[in-house]
Design a protein around this nucleic acid. Sequence first.
DNA 1: TATGAATGAGGCTTCATTCAT
DNA 2: GATGAATGAAGCCTCATTCAT
Lengths: 203, 203, 203, 203
Amino acid sequence: MEKSEKKSARTLNPEKISANREKILTTALTLFTSRGFSGTPTSLISKEAGVSTGTLFFYFKTKEELIDTLYRRIKEEAAKEMCRGMDKQKTTKAKIWLLGTNVVEWSIRNHAKLKFMEQFAHSPFVSTSAHEEGMSNFLFLSDLMKDGIREGAIRNIDPTLLLSILASALTGLVARASEIEDPDEREKIVQDGLDFIWNGMKT
Amino acid sequence: MEKSEKKSARTLNPEKISANREKILTTALTLFTSRGFSGTPTSLISKEAGVSTGTLFFYFKTKEELIDTLYRRIKEEAAKEMCRGMDKQKTTKAKIWLLGTNVVEWSIRNHAKLKFMEQFAHSPFVSTSAHEEGMSNFLFLSDLMKDGIREGAIRNIDPTLLLSILASALTGLVARASEIEDPDEREKIVQDGLDFIWNGMKT
Amino acid sequence: MEKSEKKSARTLNPEKISANREKILTTALTLFTSRGFSGTPTSLISKEAGVSTGTLFFYFKTKEELIDTLYRRIKEEAAKEMCRGMDKQKTTKAKIWLLGTNVVEWSIRNHAKLKFMEQFAHSPFVSTSAHEEGMSNFLFLSDLMKDGIREGAIRNIDPTLLLSILASALTGLVARASEIEDPDEREKIVQDGLDFIWNGMKT
Amino acid sequence: MEKSEKKSARTLNPEKISANREKILTTALTLFTSRGFSGTPTSLISKEAGVSTGTLFFYFKTKEELIDTLYRRIKEEAAKEMCRGMDKQKTTKAKIWLLGTNVVEWSIRNHAKLKFMEQFAHSPFVSTSAHEEGMSNFLFLSDLMKDGIREGAIRNIDPTLLLSILASALTGLVARASEIEDPDEREKIVQDGLDFIWNGMKT
DNA sequence: TATGAATGAGGCTTCATTCAT
DNA sequence: GATGAATGAAGCCTCATTCAT
């Protein structure tokens, strides 16, 4: 039964599901986050994942492919989480607000994944196709800016600039918020941070 | 005697000066920026700098020391450039404005150095003392926030949050501004970006 | 019962027959010829043959066994082809002539097999029993020399030397002949080559 | 003094002279001959040569480059030995005779080198530039054939065929001759073998 | 018979660093 | 100060082979 489940899952999903494959990905994420890409030998990954070297390279042809797979996965997940519930929001402000909340929450709950993404974004040597795909998953944000401008809710300035500052300001907000343990205090910080951002962009 | 003279000259400046040493640092900066830390062998640095392997390790005991030296230098330079003329500004707004302008200008003129700093900041494996020193050079910014709040010019919220968002938003502004070639257009973008930021933090 | 039938069928021919087995052998021959023994992973053979790794190792316990099987097969086939019609020839000269023609024809028609044999003969690391069997299939040639000498058709010199030069000269003839496309031209070359050889050995 | 010698030698010769480099080449030749290219790990070469792994790769960027270097060296040496004294011979026959003697003598005295060349020639995976250079060092043989034909000493048939059979027949002669220990007996064999070859090609 | 995931020894190569000159 | 040959640990990856299904 377990087997048939596996098989059907595999048939449906081009990205094969396998216990070992998943263990490798999970382990790699942790290690890459704490030790960096080049500080993490593939041998350590396989050892920590409890599989042999061969198994790692059976699932991922190269170390780079492992990193890429991880990147694509996390980016996709993050994108999904970030726009969760967005379509139910009416006003641009409400959308930005929800976006901000989603970002902060996901980032704090997935600290390792966040670190991974940051490291990936700033590694010149990981010059893969994955890198080039760039922000494809975040195109909806660009539309959000343009719509906001059209509706008159957001200042009529270069949308790319708006997006760029929005994204980086959120990063700054996350960095600060994640230092705070107390949920109420943190909530306060997040609200203040979003105020900052919204006041910056609104008309 | 010649030697002691050299020494005293050196004593004034803790960082020894030598044509070769400088060539190594310059070359390393370029290479690290384009290929990453671990993508840049010391042998390549010395070759491109036109010196022997031995010479590189004569000036820098380890590769890490070379990276650290570069980091410290650039951080110091950046800090100096960023607060240039700040003391002549009266209002908090003027100060923030000048800061922003300085940051953008320096960043664009020193693209390689900026990239280096970003890469350094996101490299888990560069766990040096240099990393820990952290933002020591930017303490004055913290005071800027606090003073602004006291004077009632800046919203009374967590100064660390303000600083965090300010810093990252500037990063976003720089990223966008540096994509634009035309000086006038770029100036416009910078002004809009600083408006964003200032509107976000002002009372 | 079905099984025992199979077995008895198999007993007649020591080399088991199976579509997969044959596909593996054929594929292996091509790959070994173009990429060399150690340049050809078993995984590639099985992939190109359209079977799984397991299947390859079901039919051949080791890679070496696969190579040996191939070697023995080809050697046997070559030997058979080479002496085809020999018993109908009366004179030593006619025999040598037929042998030469057979060799050239088979070699050109079976280029891959020829290359395989050459590679095998010059690979120090294939130190199998197969190697040692050596020229067992070509003993009749030795007799051919001795008979020729006895009859006075061939010069009375060391038969092993005769054989050795005969064999290698034929190799040279084949190498040249196989470069020529036109059948008539090639036939001319072959005749000239056999003249060379026969003139060399005749009394 | 030893050093200055080294230096001047190095300046004159593009192929640097270094004790370690030579030790590696010598050791590699022996090992490749007895164990084959892929049966000889670079680690074994460096160990037997008494140097570190790093040193081997300091002198030869890849294993392939090591093999190539060896090939080129030996080919050059062989070519030189083979035509030694040739220009002093008047008749074509005398030239062929001397060539044969040179070949046999060099081959027997340099058994390892001969084996190396044979292995190299039959290794499909060593597809380097070295391979392509081909017989460039043996062009003079081609001229020898053509001159012989013009002078009427050699049969007027395809010179390439002549060359091909001559070369391979010599290989056969060498193979047989090197099995014989006794110098007189061997000399007899060589003469008989050369008779074979000469009778085959003469008019 | 057939499959293919799993193994792990071992191969080639890189690279920070040392040291004798 | 400067050189560059030498080192060897360590990294990435391959591949023959096994085995549970």
